[in-house]
Design a binder for these strands. Structure first.
Lengths: 219, 219
DNA sequence: AACTTAAGCGGACCAGGGTCCGCTTGTCTC
DNA sequence: GAGACAAGCGGACCCTGGTCCGCTTAAGTT
């Protein structure tokens, strides 16, 4: 019924094996049967498409199932629940980001100082989350899920690495979580939408925060 | 059916007028009819009670209505939706906290330095939220609601005031939100529960963060 | 090619949140 | 005290997320 093939990776490389960077404990990834893999990508495509055209809040699970030409049970079997579907959708969207973080040009990628890279990282994430905010907010229904998803783990690992490189003296794990707390969609969206702050201002807040950890003495 | 009168303020002062401190734009508070006010408190009592005995996740709206001897429609009329009920329940729980913040003994109340008061504030909030974490997490389903509730506004105003007193040079509004971001239940709970950090460690992280804004030059 | 079987499928079904609207009841006025 | 009327009430009803279980089928095995 609907099928405009939105920005999603090619169906054939999608045999259920996570396309992660083998960075995090992603588990064995049991490899789906051919039909299941096909349905999986169709479901994600349809979901992305419907979300884009009427906002994810106005898309039911049954809509998605129907759009992909499968039964509702299939959707839940594959993704567990609504949140699971959303989290996987977001994973897709974040994959392009990830590569620019660890292999793109500076200041995002290697080559700049850790502090600069952290600043750039924050700006990118803020803009990215804002662009997909309805999806992030919807996925946020069960925050623990999102926090244990591969993309979030990637962010953690990335920030932790940069902090270590910057020789931050404090409790690195804790600081990592603190920094990512600032980038939480809920907070960013609140600042931008409800409090009417500009993206630049929120970004400046991020860089300021980073600076206070990476050693620059506060003014 | 159930009615152990849990820690809730006396029913008669509960005529729907918010018992706020007239600090925030709380609106006119239209004053409920007598029967409505009675039902309101009974509903909150029953909700608190059921939540305490089996966890809020295992309490349906119908349970609450039934326990209070009213129809389901009444519950929704009063609180709008499930989140609304939870938010109001939390408001009750936070009221005792609030008074210790602005009129209790130091270091929480007036008398200590702003930085000390901020540290103490954080510790208190962390412990309080952890104690009621299932309620906070449940209310978090719609984060915007919680963020615009009177208790959250109170926290904002309080922290903002202390930052101003401490003559913090940065973007005060933004820093206020940043700090409260650290205290977000979702984050704190993640650190304590999933990452197994100790409360002391999380508190130390808070004080460290506060210190980096209130001027102490980072090591 | 036939057989086996575990994975996948689908749609009937259930539960709980949220809505609606005709009836009831406090409360205010005269 | 009687009347007017807004506020409150309740439960039938709807929608959607999520479950269940008997049937189907892809993909190895011989």
């Amino acid at each position: 019924m609907i099928e405009p093939l939105p920005p999603l990776r090619a169906p054939q490389d999608d045999h259920g094996g996570r396309t992660d960077l083998a960075l995090m404990p992603t588990g064995p990834a049991p490899r789906l049967r051919a039909d299941a893999a096909r349905n999986r990508t169709r479901l994600l495509e349809v979901a992305a498409c419907l979300a884009a055209e009427r906002g994810i809040a106005n898309v039911t699970m049954e809509d998605i199932a129907q759009g992909a030409g499968v039964g509702k049970g299939t959707v839940f079997r594959r993704f567990g629940d609504r949140t699971g579907l959303l989290v996987e959708l977001l994973s897709h969207y974040e994959q392009q980001l990830q590569s620019s973080f660890f292999s793109g040009p500076p200041p995002l990628g290697p080559g700049a100082s850790p502090a600069e890279r952290l600043c750039a990282f924050g700006s990118t994430v803020i803009r990215h989350e804002h662009a997909h905010r309805d999806l992030y907010l919807a996925a946020h229904a069960e925050p623990g899920r999102r926090r244990s998803s591969p993309p979030y783990q990637f962010r953690l690992a990335h920030v932790r690495m940069l902090l270590r490189e910057a020789r931050v003296g404090a409790d690195i794990d804790l600081v990592t979580h603190t920094l990512l707390g600032y980038l939480e969609t809920v907070l960013v969206d609140d600042l931008l939408t409800r409090h009417g702050m500009s993206v630049e201002r929120v970004e400046a807040g991020w860089c300021d925060l980073v600076g206070r950890y990476t050693g620059r003495c506060p003014a």
